[in-house]
Design a protein around this nucleic acid. Structure first.
Length: 557
RNA sequence: UGCCUCGUGGUGUAAUGGUAGCACUAGAGACUCUGAAUCUCUCUGUCUAGGUUCGAAUCCUAGCGAGGCAGCCA
């Protein structure tokens, strides 16, 4: 039931354990290498938990590295958000296993260049003058480029001129000389460098040739002394090229090794960066940190905690099977944690007034309420009670269905921490809408009082009308209406029109002292977190997740 | 099409040649001053066919199915 984040086990950790046992590596060094071209999402969280988790469990190190080799896509803004998100998730858990300040592939551009020259000298790379289309066509046919057999000197000269900016974008490339007929297309003389006359977010205009992923990534791993280079399944076919580069350069051992695992898929959501950026750009959500987004910043704003996210990552495991994880598992992970940790408060989301006709006018009582029944150390607080209250509209029905045991005309219900009341009349406006409930209170039934033990089936939450404070509450629901929005057609057509509802709530006074870092359970409703846009004058709350609601299921029957 | 990888209840996973287990979900019940939590119970699984073996989810072969790759993106 509690978070079992201490001893995960999976095929990659088995390999790590073997590597250590056999002495292949003295210390494990992993890395988390995002490209700074978007915000991190829950799939990255899985990878972060894996890479930093392995470092943490094995006494190793995990580097954060910006894979910034494509100047046309990457921006400094993203670097900042990535660092914020990684630290939020890792601090207090694996922070003493972080490999210092973030590394940048762009810091190695000079060394990549030197390695490229070395590769040319070894006759294992050549400058190719074919267009992108020609390269593509030749590769499909398994046909060798006409420039494949240029001399080392000519290649060296051409490559230097590429670097010097003598050629237009796309005019030439540097290609590895491997095997134009290889069954694995990534071995058919892959491009190592392309020409891009573009300013880079860190190196400015120093370069006009930029290394491709395979070249940069493999060498970055080697330069940093990475031992286990863990990536997602789509890079599986790149592994032979990864190994080829290390061998072709005859780099001293030990070499890093690449392992692949399945990326995360979650029901009722889209996870790919491309799709998330569409939601942002087309304003279908309110930015990258919209609480309905499965970005790390969105989840954080929604109220998800690092511990819950790590527990979730542990629970889903690491495999090579491309699975579809049920959103219900994420929700369960949050409820499980918050049930143990959240401070309870009484809040009425959709208020209806209730008047206790036999309770003295002007009288106020202070009632004791428990802050967290799961945590004895959380203590108690006082809640003011009076003649006029607010209760939830849903907690009264004039003609209730079977098994409804909240308030009804002539019926009784317990007010949590207070009295048992009876509904005498539903007061209506001219249109016939119930606008107020007229009730009487059993004054002996107060919690701790003479008839407090009297059993009534229902207990509801409430708030004293004169003491209540106001707050805006954002009720979030799943962003999509179908389990697999990108299974077919346009995922945007499945957006849930009711994924956000804002209500004006009435809150018990103690909520005014709420702290942003704390999580709250509004009793019988769900778990909530203060939005960063909240102020002392105007509280704004985000619903992180509802409580399980078996009545909602029952009512649907 | 070629190459690579992967198939265990509805979902996510464990079992590393020796009793198919755990969690989520769903359903039933107990308890309840949260229709929450907690507790009990139930449903449901090794893709198929051969083979090896005393014994196969596990090893082998074939088939079927799914995913990935085939950018001068990462």
């Amino acid at each position: 039931m509690t978070a079992k984040t201490e001893k995960p086990s999976d095929f990659i950790r088995d390999i790590v354990a073997d590597d250590l046992r056999s002495g292949k590596y003295k210390q494990i060094r992993t890395r988390f290498p995002p490209e700074p071209n978007g915000y991190l999402h829950i799939g990255h969280a899985k990878s972060i938990c894996l890479n930093f988790g392995i470092a943490r469990e094995s006494g190793g190190i995990c580097n954060i590295r910006m894979d910034d080799t494509n100047p046309t896509k990457e921006e400094a803004e993203y670097v900042e958000s990535i660092m914020t998100d990684v630290h939020w998730l890792v601090d207090g858990w694996a922070d003493n296993h972080v490999g210092g300040a973030p590394f940048y592939a762009s810091d190695y551009f000079d060394r990549f260049y030197e390695y490229a020259i070395d590769l040319i000298r070894k006759s294992k790379a050549y400058v190719c003058d074919m267009t992108s289309e020609e390269t593509d066509a030749y590769r499909r046919l398994g046909k060798a480029s006409g420039f494949r057999d240029r001399s080392v000197e000519e290649n060296l000269g051409l490559f230097a001129r590429m670097k010097a900016g003598e050629f237009l974008d796309g005019a030439r490339t540097l290609r590895a000389k491997i095997d134009v007929n290889a069954a694995n297309v990534w071995l058919r003389d892959p491009v190592l460098y392309r020409i891009r006359h573009a300013s880079h977010h860190r190196t400015g205009n120093k370069w006009c040739i930029y290394p491709m992923y395979d070249w940069a990534h493999t060498l970055s791993d080697y330069i940093e002394g990475i031992t286990n280079s863990i990536c997602t399944l789509e890079f599986e076919v790149h592994r032979p090229l990864y190994d080829w580069i290390l061998d072709a350069l005859e780099l001293p051992e030990p070499h890093p090794h690449q392992y692949e695992f399945a990326r995360l898929n979650l029901t009722y959501s889209v996870i790919s960066k491309r799709k998330l950026i569409q939601l942002v750009n087309e304003k279908l959500v309110n930015g990258w940190d919209d609480p309905r987004m499965v970005t790390i910043s969105g989840l954080r704003r929604r109220g998800v905690t690092p511990t819950a996210l790590r527990t979730f990552a542990y629970n889903i495991g690491i495999t090579k099977y491309p699975s579809m994880t049920d959103m219900a598992l994420l929700e369960h992970t949050m409820r499980d944690e918050f049930n143990r940790t959240a401070t309870r408060r009484l809040v009425v989301l959709r208020p209806i007034k209730l008047v206790l006709t036999n309770y003295p006018e002007g009288k106020t009582e202070e009632l004791d309420a428990i802050n967290n029944p799961e945590d004895a150390n959380a203590g108690t607080r006082k809640i003011p009670f009076g003649r006029e209250l607010y209760i939830e509209q849903d907690d009264f029905m004039e003609r209730p269905p079977p098994k409804y045991f909240r308030l009804r005309p002539g019926g009784e219900v317990r007010l949590k921490y207070a009295y048992i009341i009876k509904c005498d009349e539903a007061v209506k406006d001219e249109a016939g809408n119930v606008v107020e409930l007229s009730c009487t209170v059993d004054l002996d039934s107060k919690s701790g009082g003479p008839t407090a033990g009297r059993k009534v089936k229902g207990t509801i939450h409430w708030v004293s009308a004169v003491h209540a404070t106001d707050a805006d509450i954002r009720l979030y629901d799943r962003l999509f209406t179908v389990p697999e929005p990108d299974a077919s057609g346009d995922f945007k057509s499945f957006i849930n029109p009711n994924s956000l509802e804002v209500v004006k709530a009435k809150c018990e006074p103690a909520l005014a002292e709420a702290r942003p870092e704390e999580r709250y359970q509004f009793e019988r409703l769900g778990y909530f977190a203060l939005d960063p846009g909240s102020t002392a004058e105007k509280q704004i709350w985000n619903r992180t997740v509802t409580l399980r609601d078996t009545w909602a299921k029952e009512a649907k029957k």
